[in-house]
């Protein structure tokens, strides 16, 4: 089926099967930042924004992008880089496989919460698994990033 949607502020028409999930459609479209770490909606690696809300692209059927606005990390490179610089300075990206989904969630949090506490930060980011870093460095980076800005 054809899906008219907006991806990273560009109106596009995508072709997808009925049972195709958005993560695959986006990858096929060339957005290779989309990573998948599981097949049970558990890891958060595939997080994109749908109408600004962080959402699992692996569990969202592609047709539901119809008429909505999808944002991937490719579409917010400037802000992503700002945060990534803090993250990288902390050494808190290791294999980096979880990073795009993690950064999309961090940026969504920044838009959604005002001056979050540490507890609120941890809560908001819990759905992003990371097997490498042990989370502490990511937390230090997020705290630095939010205070800086």
């Amino acid at each position: 089926m054809q899906i008219e949607t907006t991806i990273n502020n560009k109106k596009v028409t995508l072709e997808a099967a009925n049972d195709e999930f958005l993560a695959d459609t986006l990858r096929n479209y060339g957005l290779l930042s989309i990573r998948q770490g599981c097949d049970t909606s558990c890891c958060g690696l595939c997080t994109v924004w749908i109408d600004g809300k962080p959402t699992l692209s692996c569990s969202t059927l592609a047709f539901r992008a119809q008429g909505r606005s999808i944002t991937t990390i490719e579409g917010v490179q400037q802000e992503a880089k700002k945060f990534a610089e803090v993250l990288v300075a902390e050494g808190a990206e290791q294999c980096g496989f979880c990073s795009p989904g993690f950064i999309m969630t961090v940026l969504a949090m920044k838009n959604e919460l005002n001056h979050p506490t540490e507890e609120e930060i941890v809560h908001y980011l819990t759905g992003n698994l990371c097997r490498c870093t042990g989370y502490m460095g990511q937390l230090r980076a997020v705290k630095k990033y939010l205070e800086v800005k």
Partner: peptide
């Protein structure tokens, strides 16, 4: 490789 892997 930090910036490249982090930003997707």
């Amino acid at each position: 490789d930090g910036m490249d892997i982090a930003t997707g």
